[in-house]
Nucleic acid binder design. Structure first.
Lengths: 190, 190
DNA sequence: CGCGCGATTGAGTAATTTCAAATCTAGTGG
DNA sequence: CCACTAGATTTGAAATTACTCAATCGCGCG
């Protein structure tokens, strides 16, 4: 099965697992097919799983009191997404996770994740590795916010993830960069 | 010894280690005493350790081509600091880590960290936990940059870490918030 | 006393926002 | 195939926010 291979490749890039171990790990994941626009996590939800993207694209975002949307991350194939604050601190979700396109994911409940990490040292290593990458990426983005203006951030994003340009509407890119749609629209001409 | 107890408490809050295990872990840490202004990591350095703060305060920052400083984090007692991008991807440092006050730290080399994580599953769990917290905190700060103006970010910071107000000069707070000193100075009156 | 550093204030400028309106585009039903 | 609509993008203009540069203030310390 395709999902299985996809996850396997993802894990094996960082750790080694026997076929039996992997099969056991995989048995804890549940496949889901979502349609464009489907909502996986809503503010206020209790969150108890994270999601590994097989195909398609998710976005994780926060909406403030003025109904302005801020995108925390786009999740493409091979990425993981959830409301980690809610998952980790066991509080209600404050962000939304939904589908930009039709999307296939594998879900892993946090209980199972912790159980598997406990049982399989290598897997705990994997998740430490993954989280560390995320941490570093978040700090790079923080620097980008502090150091660069709207145009600089836009160019950096397009250089790093050129595929986004055609994949997601401009207003979502604006919401990721933390600028208004109008400003983003004007950037090309300056 | 004080440093030992301090680290022990820090670890035991999240995981359980036998006295022997802890002693073994601790034997890999090296104590350092730094004076205010001392530099621990400079841009261009090869980085091979991270630092656990026992007392005092560090700052990790990036300086851009216009010599403007941006603070990635303040590290108070019980915090860990390094140039994680350099440490993790084995590239030259792009940030500086230095001492805001006289500071005592314990250093742990990355090789030892990986070795210990390998040998002691619980410790790997600890570092996954710690990194996950950092990841979530970084995303909260990202939202703060996107959602809030200078005043909002300042108030949020002062609410979360009121001790910073007296501990570090205002210009460093400005560099953490990503605003100019002048702007920060004017915030009180608005 | 006077130096030096951090903090404040003033004034002009640049970047970005908001609100409003116009334009473009893809998909739908006739 | 065309008209129509909803959503996305662009454009204009005024208002706001924050920046830069320059000058001043306040205070601790030799």
């Amino acid at each position: 099965m395709q999902a299985e291979d996809f996850l396997k490749q993802h894990l094996l890039k960082q750790i080694s697992l026997s076929d039996e171990q992997f099969a056991y790990v995989f048995s804890h994941f549940k496949p889901h097919s979502f349609k464009k626009g489907d909502v996986i996590i809503s503010p206020g939800d209790q969150v108890d799983a994270e999601y590994f993207v097989l195909s398609g694209c998710l976005k994780s975002f926060y909406v403030n009191d003025k109904l302005k949307m801020f995108i925390l991350m786009f999740a493409m194939p091979n990425w993981w997404a959830s409301d980690y604050n809610a998952l980790y601190y066991k509080v209600k979700a404050t962000t939304t996770l939904d589908c930009i396109t039709d999307t296939e994911v594998l879900s892993l409940s946090n209980d199972d994740l912790e159980k598997l990490c406990n049982e399989i040292h290598e897997l705990e290593h994997f998740f430490r590795w993954r989280t560390c990458r995320g941490y570093i990426a978040a700090h790079k983005r923080l620097l980008s916010f502090m150091n660069k203006d709207a145009k600089g951030r836009y160019e950096e994003l397009m250089k790093t993830y050129p595929e986004l340009y055609n994949l997601v509407p401009k207003q979502l890119i604006a919401a990721y960069l933390g600028v208004s749609r109008e400003t983003l629209s004007r950037l090309n001409y300056k």
